[in-house]
Write a protein that binds this DNA or RNA. Structure first.
Length: 222
DNA sequence: CACCAGGCAAGTA
DNA sequence: TACTTGCATGGT
């Protein structure tokens, strides 16, 4: 079995509480449709959310933010409209891949997709070219309301720097670590990931070796 | 100017 | 299997 620091397991909820009290509630992806969350999840791959917002705004202006339109629209035109999000050609392809899957397996019904078991949908999403584990889990959690934990580069950076997980942990290892240590509640997974991203952006930048005024600074090794 | 952003897949050895 | 490279715009 995969061993992990026992300290970390017992302290995970405490870390969550700490981040939450420091940063306050995140209210992530709150008033949007599940469709917009799905499109945003693909567009934000290795890309700032600011850029994604421009692309989403363009799609809305064009009246193209519907399953029907996105399923039928030409890939070239889609690419042009999402251009501000970067990697626009490959992302247009990935979006079309998703909507082809949705049409063929669920008649274009996001609701029908959401009725299926978490692991089944996760496997199906991972089978789509251009949907990796983080995108799949983001769709599951934030669009479909399924209790899966979303891991990203910040998760690895923050928790490995604090020696709470091994540096060499991969995506599935990190996801298991959180899901086995925490109660499987959607609101908790939702808010915890949001807090991790916000902490990473503000206090745990790529090149910064120390935490500065990071809320977790006293977890630093001596 | 360099560097980074809520990844992923394809290519190489 | 384990690295490396391509994809691209926009903000700091």
């Amino acid at each position: 079995m995969n061993s992990m620091p026992s300290v970390a397991r017992s302290q995970l909820l405490a870390i969550y509480e700490r981040l939450h009290s420091f940063l306050g509630p995140s209210d992530w992806w709150p008033g949007e449709t599940s469709l917009e969350v799905i499109v945003g999840a693909i567009l934000t791959q290795n890309t700032s959310w600011r850029n994604v917002e421009q692309a989403l705004a363009r799609l809305k202006e064009e009246g193209a933010l519907s399953v029907e339109r996105l399923t039928r629209m030409g890939e070239e035109q889609l690419a042009e409209w999402i251009r501000p999000a970067g990697y626009y050609r490959i992302k247009a392809r990935r979006l079309k891949n998703f909507f082809r899957f949705l049409q063929e397996d669920y008649h274009g019904q996001i609701g029908a997709l959401g009725e299926q078991p978490l692991e089944k949908v996760r496997d199906q999403l991972l089978g789509i070219r251009g949907v990796g584990p983080e995108t799949a889990d983001s769709i599951l959690l934030y669009a479909l309301g399924k209790p899966t934990f979303v891991v990203d580069t910040y998760t690895h950076r923050i928790f490995s720097r604090h020696l709470l997980v091994p540096e060499e942990s991969d995506y599935e290892g990190l996801r298991s670590f959180f899901m086995e240590a925490l109660p499987g509640e959607v609101p908790l997974f939702n808010e915890f990931h949001a807090l991790i991203v916000r902490t990473g952006k503000t206090y745990c930048k790529k090149k910064a070796p120390l935490c500065g005024d990071c809320p977790l600074r006293d977890l630093e090794p001596a």
